[in-house]
């Protein structure tokens, strides 16, 4: 297992470098620079700024300078948030996104799996239709609309939860977690249902029933375990996406997470921050996929990690 994980990590390193190179090139092709502002500055001042951030060097030199820093674990200074390093910005904002994302992921598995099971087990009944209605709604409704509806009903109308902010209490977390978690709930429920419907018809399930096992052990031991494989497959990228935050949710609820930097770093042309958040996302995605591969082996012994 450990050699497999190490091998996967080793293979990922060139991927990260290719990604960093592509991101670097795309950033520099994009019109507009980090220090373009509505109030133009005299050329001598522009020269001072470019010298400070090494932007006066040729592009290839800037690239090697950045890569050298990256190898040493230095993501560079932010061009927008003066005096703060990209590492500091990620250190401050990623834990918030991870916390919010983990709650939402927990909600997604807690609700998505049972909903999928119920829908498949009670296939064709009103329970199936209701579960799938929730699932389809979760997938089709955009998150900003879900967030707005939640705020309207639970904050304005009922006054149960605050309309935004992130003060630490549970009451501040319920609405953003619900808004962020609804889509993954829906995805997992649909996958679970489809997968269970396949497994439920399998010969070994019929055999288990014929042997006189009651329904609960059949579902839990034979059906559920084998139906989880597609859910685990999707949970890697889903988890990586969800814990790096949602721009819309963090924006609407004024949550100080990392997702905003994916957008604002680009609009500000904050090159080091664009690179930083892109690379963090890539690393998390790679780690989540390794985790998924490991989980495969745990769930289904026929799958070997090697």
């Amino acid at each position: 297992m450990i050699p497999f994980i190490l091998k996967r990590i080793f293979i990922s390193i060139p991927v990260i470098f290719v990604l960093a190179t592509i991101t670097f090139c795309i950033m520099r092709i994009t019109p507009g620079g980090p220090f373009d502002k509505d109030k133009a500055i005299p050329p001598e001042i522009k020269a001072n700024i470019e010298a400070k951030y090494h932007l006066d060097r040729p592009l290839w030199s800037q690239y090697f300078y950045y890569m050298k820093g990256l190898i040493q674990g230095d993501l560079g200074p932010s061009y927008k948030y003066l005096g703060r390093s990209v590492t500091d910005i990620i250190k401050d904002s990623l834990p918030v996104s991870v916390e919010l994302g983990l709650y939402a992921a927990f909600l997604a598995f807690l609700l998505g799996i049972p909903l999928g099971i119920i829908a498949a087990y009670k296939h064709g009944t009103w329970l199936d239709s209701s579960s799938m209605f929730i699932a389809i709604s979760g997938i089709t409704l955009p998150s900003f609309l879900v967030a707005a509806l939640l705020i309207y009903f639970f904050s304005f109308k009922m006054g149960w939860f605050p309309a935004g902010l992130w003060e630490g209490g549970w009451e501040y977390k319920i609405l953003p977690v619900a808004a962020l978690g609804l889509r993954p709930v829906a995805i997992i429920a649909r996958l679970m249902r489809t997968s269970m419907l396949d497994v439920i018809k399998a010969d070994y399930v019929r055999t288990a029933r014929a042997k006189g096992l009651s329904e609960f052990p059949v579902i839990l031991k034979h059906v559920l375990k084998n139906s989880l494989i597609p859910v685990i497959t999707i949970s890697g990228p889903l988890l990586a996406g969800i814990i790096t935050g949602s721009f819309v949710i963090e924006h609407v609820f004024a949550i100080p997470g990392m997702a905003k930097h994916f957008i604002l770093a680009v609009t500000n042309r904050d090159y080091p921050l664009i690179m930083g958040v892109t690379l963090i996302y890539a690393v998390l995605l790679i780690l989540a996929n390794i985790l998924v591969d490991v989980l495969y082996a745990v769930i289904d012994p026929r799958i070997k990690v090697s």
Binding site: I151, S155, F156, G159, P162, A163, G164, L165, H251, V252, F253, A254
Partner: peptide, 8 residues
Amino acid sequence: TALSLYDT
């Protein structure tokens, strides 16, 4: 969001 927080 700012307006929601003001209103509440």
